[in-house]
Amino acid sequence: MNTTSVSPEFTTRKATNRTTRRRADGQATAALLIQMATEILSASPTLRQKAGITLTDLSAADKVRKQLLKHGLTTIS
């Protein structure tokens, strides 16, 4: 019978390494996701074809991403 136990040192260390939760920023997150998707789809013609997305669509998405970042920066300042 294989049973694993957690050492007390590990549980203590884990509890003390807890990070504080950062405040969610929906616009910044959306901009990051758009950027990631644009980079992935730009590099993969097969994925673009399967999704029915053109390079023009990716360009338009990048403009939206920039607007999100610009709007987010003006509302924070």
Rank of each mutant, 00 (worst) to 15 (best):
M1T: 01
N2R: 15
T3W: 09
T3H: 14
S5P: 01
S7P: 02
S7T: 09
E9M: 05
E9A: 10
E9N: 05
E9K: 08
F10N: 00
R13I: 14
R13D: 13
K14L: 13
K14Y: 10
K14I: 09
A15R: 12
A15P: 00
T16P: 02
T16L: 12
T16S: 15
N17S: 12
R18A: 05
T19K: 04
R21V: 13
R23V: 13
A24E: 13
A24Q: 07
D25N: 14
G26D: 11
G26I: 13
A28I: 03
T29K: 08
T29G: 06
A30Q: 06
A31S: 00
L33E: 15
L33F: 14
I34E: 00
I34Q: 03
Q35K: 11
Q35T: 07
Q35I: 05
A37G: 07
T38A: 09
T38Q: 02
T38V: 14
E39H: 04
L41T: 01
S42T: 12
S42A: 11
P45E: 12
T46K: 11
L47M: 09
R48Q: 04
R48K: 12
R48T: 00
R48G: 01
R48C: 03
Q49P: 03
Q49K: 13
K50E: 09
K50T: 08
K50V: 11
A51H: 07
G52D: 00
G52M: 06
I53Q: 02
I53P: 04
L55F: 06
L55M: 11
L55N: 13
T56M: 12
T56R: 06
T56W: 07
L58S: 05
L58Y: 02
L58A: 02
A61F: 08
A61H: 07
D62A: 09
D62M: 04
K63T: 15
K63F: 11
K63I: 14
R65Y: 04
L69A: 03
L69K: 03
K70Q: 09
H71F: 15
G72E: 12
T74F: 14
T75G: 12
T75A: 15
